[in-house]
Design a protein around this nucleic acid. Structure first.
Lengths: 345, 345
DNA sequence: CTGAAAGCGCTTACAG
DNA sequence: CTGAAAGCGCTTACAG
């Protein structure tokens, strides 16, 4: 009887406290008249480590006070934060934002939350972020960027759990999610060849990542296999410019070189948009006079770029595989590459 | 002399320890042969609170051991995390990802890192994330979503620092960054009117947010002012469909209603892309037979949608203003709305 | 079944 | 100028 009264008066007290700041384990302990340890056990579902009556009392207090465990305290004690960092080369690129979006969803499903860091493809920013993320005690890193930098080298060296997407770890073999870019390039070659193109070209940005290079390389190699003329390969750069501008510029440069291809591989959709604008400005019909093919396969293409054939890369599915890789890493399994199938455009 | 030797031997020890796990304040203290308090002060730049010699010794140890302060410990102690949460209604939407991107950059400049949470416009997810973010002790919330939910109501009630972007706080007046959507709609009306359109329509998704509604309302109101026929206003929904599909569907529905406008306001660029496809499928020339105008002004338009007039919303600049608002909030200044200028298409 | 105590990494009065 | 100590919120042996 006594304990009963006690509980009631506690409940009254607690309701008053409702207005205050964040509620801690200690507040619940006091309200439920048990030790902090007991509350912690109940909170963590170790319900068999407490009597049914006690557990119930604790749960009621938690409910009434609106207690939510503070992750910071938990992280500090356990050394695990349930937080993952994603570093991306540039969120303005729709490919990157699609990957970020799908990764975020997959992480949430796995019970994690995600820091988003845009490195703008700059080494110092990449390092700054890597260090900042380490300071936040994140449990893993997802990199959609692979600039070489002292910080990245150090992280790789230390064996931090990292999964690379699109671009590979620049220092060593490791977890990776992407497609076989060379085969995608080859598929593009097949398609242009089948469509009757005999004077081809390929465009990509100056100093672009391995990804785009491999697409072009696969394209070139396949054309050689079928005995076609080698494609004109043009790299273009526009200081501070977007892929759109680079695509435009590359098409312009082709003209300058007096090359007039009937089929062009654009290493990404954005490049294709730029190249298309140049073509139409010059009065070329696409695909009548010139076929454009690219690799990415944005949803948008079907809607506003019907003139474009694009090999579809399943970026939307990267997230699931990235998170799977991360879980594998944590479980100590040996890292591997996951090459997803692409869809011929 | 003695202390000199001591330092040297310490340095040797520390180099060995280099291989170990994370380095803590205590490790540095031991290496530099000072107290933890002293190290902490040096780390935090309270350099006048230590002798030049001591400070130097500490700095050397920090350098050699590669010490980085653990934010988790700091956060737990100080109650400030230097972390902000962004909740977005859906990252697949380019508008949202542009805002996320610009916000991330502005936060970094201010010394903060950002959690990214995609609520998929679902109340339960929104609440789940709000609670998860609170548990992470984030210092503020940026919402590009405004679904009503118990959790959001509670956060507003508690006065958590929140800045809304695009969409307003659904419960009360508060910090907001956006444009004057009604005026943007009016500007669209002016433009179509000036271009000679006399049979207009406006399309938007069923159950869409206040943002798009206001654009259409501003459009309607302005047309009334200039004495034009009232526009046909069509709301369309496609279960699980994108804005692209909705735009297409809305255009189709107009035909069904036997309405054939010579000018359509599409409440967002994506809707316009969809509406355009339908128009071209029906053999209409855009803008010859039908003008399309929208509000967003994606960079892409100039490249692959030259047929579209779009009022430009400076999403790229939202980040700076959002972060400014957040800083204001923290400094206790009274919240206000920031309406950025848009550019007539 | 339950609680007291130590400790995760840090900051910050307080004392010397 | 410097250090010992308390404490942020939590978990987890350990003891009873």
């Amino acid at each position: 009887m006594k304990s009963m009264e006690k509980r009631e008066s506690d409940a009254t007290m607690t309701t008053k406290r409702d207005a205050g700041g964040p509620v801690s384990l200690a507040d619940i302990a006091k309200a439920a008249d048990v030790s902090i340890s007991t509350v912690s056990r109940v909170v963590n579902g170790q319900t068999h480590r407490a009597s049914a009556e006690t557990a119930e009392r604790v749960r009621r207090a938690i409910e009434e006070l609106g207690y939510r465990p503070n992750q910071i305290g938990r992280t500090l004690k356990k050394g695990k934060s349930r937080v993952v960092a994603m570093l991306t080369a540039g969120m303005h690129n729709p490919v990157m934002s699609t990957i970020a979006s799908s990764t975020e969803a997959a992480l949430r499903d796995a019970g994690y939350v995600m820091f988003l860091c845009d490195t703008h493809d700059r080494a110092e920013l990449q390092d700054e972020y890597l260090n900042a993320m380490r300071a936040q005690a994140v449990e893993g890193y997802i990199l959609v960027t692979n600039i070489k930098s002292p910080g990245l080298a150090e992280f790789v060296e230390r064996g931090e759990p990292m999964v690379f997407a699109c671009r590979r770890n620049p220092y060593r073999f490791g977890p990776f999610v992407g497609i076989d870019d060379k085969r995608a390039g080859a598929a593009a070659a097949d398609r242009l060849w089948a469509d009757g193109c005999r004077r081809t070209a390929a465009i990509l940005p100056t100093g672009s990542s391995q990804v785009l290079r491999e697409r072009v390389e696969g394209f070139r190699a396949r054309l050689a296999e079928v005995g076609a003329e080698p494609p004109a390969i043009v790299e273009a750069g526009v200081p501070g410019g977007s892929l759109l501008e680079i695509g435009y510029e590359a098409a312009r440069r082709l003209e300058e070189m007096n090359i007039h291809p009937d089929g062009i591989l654009c290493a990404s959709d954005q490049l294709a948009y730029g190249a298309h604008r140049r073509a139409t400005e010059r009065g070329l019909r696409v695909p009548g006079d010139r076929r454009l093919i690219s690799i990415d396969g944005s949803e948008l293409n079907g809607w506003i770029a019907p003139w474009l054939v694009s090999i579809h890369v399943p970026y939307r599915e990267y997230g699931t595989h990235i998170v799977e890789q991360l879980l594998s890493l944590w479980h100590g399994r040996t890292p591997r590459e996951i090459l997803l199938p692409f869809l011929r455009g």
